[in-house]
Nucleic acid binder design. Structure first.
Length: 809
RNA sequence: GCCGGUGUGAUGGAAUUGGUAGACGUAGCGGAUUCAAAAUCCGCCGCCAGCGAUGGCGUGUGGGUUCGAGUCCCACCACCGGCACCA
């Protein structure tokens, strides 16, 4: 008997696939239905591919291989999201050009991806750092700029006081610099922004039309954070307008004070009118020194200062209430001013209690001496609220909204938690922003025929002392002429964030070599949208949202044919280390797929990573348990070697095979790869007991092919099927089951007495209730349990169970 | 605090969606084969009591609905992930 030599077999087929390209997607093929399966393209890190990549990649490879065998024209592409900080840091440390680092890392990734037998269309590989690629990233940015969606604004950034550089949020760990441990403060800096908030409504509403797993939809909705409320104009005693945003306009009569954010520009304007300005400005300074981190940490304890000399007037009842400055009011949400309703908002209650302010009840039902009463349901009735008295909160909100609108001191208003996207990075290894600043003309876009704007060579990739990008030191590059007036001008030296290139890469896969457009109209029309996109939950609120935003913009300007980029989104769980902890270098529990492939082969690796657990749930890696998958493949190999030389199926195996076809086909579509494999294991165990023909094996290896493509392709060839019809992966004959053949001739019925299991009886399939009842009564334990009893009722479930309900006679 | 998710043998996990809990693996135990080991094959493998037939208990906890609950309802507990003074 020949041993299953996985090393030789896998090498052989990987070389054949590379040469013969059986996985090439065909643009515009209308004879077949298209299927675009997408995985999140990897960041080519120096550590190479890890088992965390193998899980989603293998799953989508299985889906795509099966789709091909079902006759689809499948696009399953791969690329590299290669701009980014780790590469830049490595380049700085080792004085190697980041492009060189990227190139080497990509080669390593490519080798590993081949090693695992993925059926990518290698002719469509993309790389975000390739100028032919980022030309179009820049082009999209320019279209956004032209439509007014890109603008420059002063934003607080993380500034490391020791390194003197701007840090990304990910580089700030518990308030200090990740690299040097230095103090990080907030510093105002002008940054390019993208107005994603203009798409907030559509980003929520269009979730209705896509097939995303629910937790992704929920997380995106929460992140965008739409809230429907009311703006109400209060008046300051100095005449200025104090507009607040509230979702509870019904409580307007319960306002006993107001609060303004320490960052609010009014304070500076009111400097001379505020009698205790020293105290107020000291409070402002203190708030500014606190990082976001601290401000969040110190939550519950309310601090603030009452403004002396200015009060607020409630438009609903004309009452004067005191005005405070307090850092619990955020400048970034609403209007930066809030009305204080301590009776019905816990934060306001805390503040009012700390400052001894009156607490007025306007909704009945709680005990406002102990805590705020915040319920919004029908249990509360309005009191102390003029014309609202007697209404429920549910009635009072729309009534008040209408009232303030009619009276002219308020209006309905929708607010979002979503902020505009900070799009600038003061870094080298990113796409240059193709804009030029001219004294006369302002910010001017580079003409499109000058794209791509190449990243220039620099001597050092270190950021400058002032926190500017390394590009700022390249005066030859920075100084240019204005495309508009021809006068002297400077280039923007910020680069784009890593999210830019990944916001549209799936479009480039559709037509990756096009130099006239990001992709041709034909290719976009044919392949759009992505049919199935699987990726990590950690990308839900960034990459996934950003790319939906870009896609909607491209739809608006007529570039892409669909409103949404992805038809279906699923998400995989993490692979944890042996101890159940996250895999990391510092814990020393990282598993390298190279080692597993060397020891057991790629087919075993693929099988195990799918068998390890529920795909959507986190799973714990066990190198020990990998053996089980290898043993299974050994058994398949043995079974094949002992197959009788007949292409006829064996009658005894018919039901087994049809059941397995049904189970595997359904399970792949619902991502239950673990139970699909278990079903194939069961089938192999049963087939081994019965003995098989080549005909039986044909079906088995077809089902197994998406999971273990090398061994099955080899067996296919050895059985002589390849001589008849070519490679297995190119066949459009995924096995089809016949429902009537999946049922066995007899089934085991559970026999219960009063719901307690007493035994089983094996009876012909579809036996009648009477027949099963008779057989059940013959069971020893049933006789014991029913002795002296009367059967009052029988519950019968077809092909499942019979339950006898008995009572004493 | 809010929003998601999860809780099942020693262990990873199954369970036709309310119908025989523990499929399929891993580990373990016993046996075969071997000079020996590995590999392979056969058998056992939820817990408690019992030599045994057998009986009792059992899906995080406590209640409920039902002929029947891992699955549905109510109230809790623990862990994981996300957000967090969002007015």
């Amino acid at each position: 008997m020949m041993k299953y030599d996985f090393t030789a077999i896998e090498k052989k087929w990987q070389a054949r696939w590379l040469e013969e390209k059986p996985f090439t997607a065909v643009n515009g093929d209308t004879t077949r239905e298209k299927f675009f399966g997408l995985i999140e393209f990897p960041y080519p890190s120096g550590q190479g591919l890890h088992v965390g990549h193998a899980r989603p990649f293998t799953a989508m490879d299985i889906i795509c291989r099966k789709k091909r065998m079902q006759g689809y024209n499948v696009l399953f592409p791969i690329g590299y999201d290669a701009f980014g900080l780790p590469t830049e840091n490595y380049a700085v440390q080792h004085k190697i050009h980041p492009a060189k680092v990227t190139h080497d890392n990509v080669e390593n990734f490519r080798r590993q991806l081949h090693m695992l037998g993925y059926s990518f269309d290698w002719d469509r590989e993309v790389n975000t750092t390739d100028p032919d690629y980022y030309k179009w990233t820049q082009w999209i940015f320019l279209q956004m700029f032209k439509k007014g969606l890109a603008y420059k604004a002063s934003m607080p950034v993380n500034w490391c006081t020791s390194c003197k550089i701007v840090l990304a949020n990910e580089e700030v760990v518990e308030g200090v610099c990740e690299r040097c441990g230095g103090e990080v403060i907030r510093k105002e800096k002008a940054q390019w922004m993208l107005a994603i908030t203009k798409y907030a409504d559509r980003l929520i509403d269009d979730l209705e039309d896509v097939d995303f797993i629910n937790r992704v939809k929920i997380q995106q909705r929460n992140w965008i954070g739409r809230s429907e409320g009311t703006e109400v104009d209060f008046t300051a005693t100095n005449g200025d307008r104090l507009t607040v945003y509230t979702t509870r306009c019904d409580t307007l009569f319960g306002v006993t004070y107001m609060v303004i954010s320490p960052e609010h520009p009014y304070l500076e304007q009111w400097k001379d009118q505020i009698q205790n300005w020293d105290e107020v400005s000291a409070y402002q300074a203190e708030a500014a020194r606190k990082s976001d981190f601290e401000r969040g940490e110190l939550n519950k304890e309310k601090t603030g200062v009452r403004l002396q000399g200015i009060e607020a007037v409630n438009p609903a009842n004309g009452r004067h209430v005191p005005l405070f400055v307090s850092d619990y009011v955020l400048m970034g949400y609403g209007t930066g001013i809030v009305m204080g309703v301590p009776g019905h908002d816990q934060r306001d209650w805390d503040f009012a209690t700390a400052f001894g302010l009156p607490i007025v009840e306007v909704v009945q039902g709680g005990d406002i001496t102990r805590e705020a009463f915040v319920l919004k349901d029908d249990t509360g009735i309005m009191v102390n609220s003029g014309f609202l008295n007697g209404m429920t909160v549910k009635e009072a909100i729309p009534a008040m909204k209408e009232h303030v609108t009619k009276e002219g001191y308020g209006r309905p208003k929708t607010n979002f938690k979503l902020r505009d996207w900070v799009f600038s990075r003061q870094r080298y290894w990113g796409e240059p922003i193709p804009l030029v600043h001219c004294e006369k003309c302002g910010w001017v876009p580079l003409p499109e025929d000058q794209l791509p704007l190449l990243l220039p060579e620099v001597e050092s990739y270190e950021v400058t002392d002032t926190g500017e990008s390394p590009l700022a030191k390249m005066t030859d590059w920075v100084n240019t002429t204005c495309p508009c007036c021809g006068g002297p001008a400077q280039r923007e030296t910020d680069t784009m964030p890593q999210w830019a290139g990944s916001s549209w890469y799936f479009l480039r896969y559709m037509d990756p070599h096009n130099d006239k457009a990001l992709a041709s109209k034909e290719a976009l029309n044919y392949w759009s949208p992505v049919d199935w996109y699987n990726g990590g939950m950690e990308h839900t609120t960034l990459h996934l949202l950003y790319s939906r935003f870009w896609h909607k913009f491209l739809y608006d300007i007529g570039v892409v044919p669909t409103r949404e980029p992805y038809g279906k989104r699923t998400s995989h769980g993490m692979i944890l280390g042996e101890g159940g902890e996250k895999m990391s270098k510092s814990r020393g529990n990282v598993v390298n797929p190279n080692d597993i492939v060397a020891q057991y082969g790629a087919d075993t690796m693929r099988l195990y990573i799918m068998f390890v657990g529920d795909f959507e749930q986190a799973a714990i890696w066990s190198t020990e348990a990998v053996k089980g998958s290898k043993r299974f493949l050994d058994r398949v190999w043995n079974l094949a070697e002992n197959a009788r030389d007949s292409t006829d199926p064996t009658p005894a195996n018919e039901a087994i095979l049809h059941r397995t076809i049904k189970k595997v086909t359904g399970d792949i579509d619902s991502l239950k790869m673990n139970t699909a494999i278990a079903a194939m294991m069961t089938a192999v165990n049963e087939l081994t007991a019965n003995g098989v023909t080549k005909g039986d094996m044909k079906i088995l290896i077809q089902l197994l092919n998406p999971f273990a493509p090398h061994i099955t392709e080899e067996l296919w060839e050895r059985f002589g099927f390849a001589a008849e019809s070519g490679k297995m992966c190119c066949q459009s004959d995924w096995p089809v089951y016949d429902e009537s053949k999946t049922v066995a001739s007899s089934v085991e019925f559970a026999v219960q007495v009063n719901g307690k299991l007493k035994g089983t009886v094996t009876m012909p399939t579809d036996s009648s209730e009477q027949a099963v009842a008779d057989a059940a009564m013959a069971v020893d334990k049933v006789q014991k349990a029913t002795a002296g009893m009367k059967v009052v009722k029988t519950i019968f479930v077809r092909n499942r169970l019979i339950n006898l309900i008995v009572k004493p006679q």
